[in-house]
Amino acid sequence: MPDPARLFQSLSDPVRLRLLRLLVREELHVQELVAITGLSQPRVSKHLGLLRKQGWVDQRKEGTRSWYRARSGDDAPGGTALLPTVLTLAEELPQTDGDDERLVLALGARQAQAKAFFSAMADRWETIRLRYAQPEFDLGLMGGLAQPEARVLDVGTGGGALLPEFAATGARVLAVDLSLPMLVRARKRCRGQAAGEVDFCCGAAEALPLGDGACDVVQCAMVLHHVARPARVVAELARVLRPDGRLAVTSFCAHHQEWMRSELAHQWLGFERTEMERFFRLAHVTPGRWLQRGPRSPDGSGNGNGPNAADWPEVFLMTGIKDADHGG
């Protein structure tokens, strides 16, 4: 049981209220909090340390970054009763409007980085993709997910590597990608190959252009580490999935390859299995299979500082089924 005096003292500074309010909304790293609040990094770190000590926030190390998010529900100090009251008080602070505006800009910057990267790399992306592609994952997706007449959504289709195979099963496929140049390449790949119906749409994984429960199958391959809000993307994938529909996500396992941020525009250095299971359950999807494989060419002699074969982290495939009693 936390000391009530220390607990309330931890909220006595307006800066800590601002930080807690932001971290209830999003998981943010220290540099983003500095940019949003306009405060120095030492000052932000000091206040985060006090919030963490009293159990208001959790810290997660990822490479050189420290990420923070607020505890919620029964995990928050005082259980479910205290935090809403604290947030109501925080809304009265004069800095909240500015914080909200800069939070939107920070999240937009994450998405803009990925969009610019893929637009610039469209012609070379297939070469990069083959460094980590897992053919057995592709075969598993084809055999276990796509069926004749199934409504399949391929989110972040990139160059459309899986589209001809999906369409060959007789499925009706919609390919969505944030980058128009990548969609152009995907369309070319399917020309004259696809036996089924394939449509293309430029859009973001965070806001899919479909109604609730519109799809039988949703697959999202090697996208999650690029997006601004992974948990929200998984929730959006689940939203457009019908009850008992199937979800498949591939991404990198958690790693420490910092070069992937600068060279490949990764926002996140992979994901732990427990984290992915949490994303699925929050989205009302029951986790199923978890498979992981090493780099496609594991005979390199990388030193951890560049894109050699040994520097590529493992890739996972996670599948799940949307809860039957939960609509879109």
Rank of each mutant, 00 (worst) to 15 (best):
A5E: 12
L7K: 04
Q9Y: 13
L11G: 06
L11I: 08
S12E: 14
D13Q: 11
L20V: 07
L22Y: 03
R25G: 01
H29E: 11
T37W: 06
G38T: 09
R43I: 10
V57N: 05
A76D: 06
A76I: 02
P77M: 10
P84C: 05
T85A: 14
A90V: 07
E91Q: 12
L93F: 03
D99Y: 05
E101H: 09
R102G: 00
V104S: 10
L105E: 15
R110E: 02
F118A: 08
D123R: 09
W125P: 01
R129S: 08
Y132L: 13
Y132E: 08
P135R: 01
E136F: 06
F137A: 11
G143Y: 13
G144V: 06
P148A: 05
P148W: 13
A150N: 09
V155F: 15
T157V: 13
T157P: 05
L162Y: 06
E165S: 14
A167R: 01
R172E: 15
R172M: 08
V176T: 10
S179P: 08
V198F: 11
V198R: 05
D199H: 12
F200V: 08
C201F: 06
A205N: 03
E206V: 10
A207R: 14
G211E: 04
G213C: 07
A214Q: 12
V217Y: 01
M222G: 03
A231Y: 04
V233H: 05
V240A: 09
P243M: 11
V249E: 08
S251R: 05
A254S: 13
Q257I: 09
E263K: 09
E277C: 02
F280L: 01
L282N: 07
A283F: 01
V285G: 00
T286D: 01
Q292E: 15
R293M: 10
R293Q: 15
R296W: 02
S297R: 15
P298M: 07
D299H: 13
S301L: 12
G306D: 11
P307C: 07
V315A: 06
G327D: 01
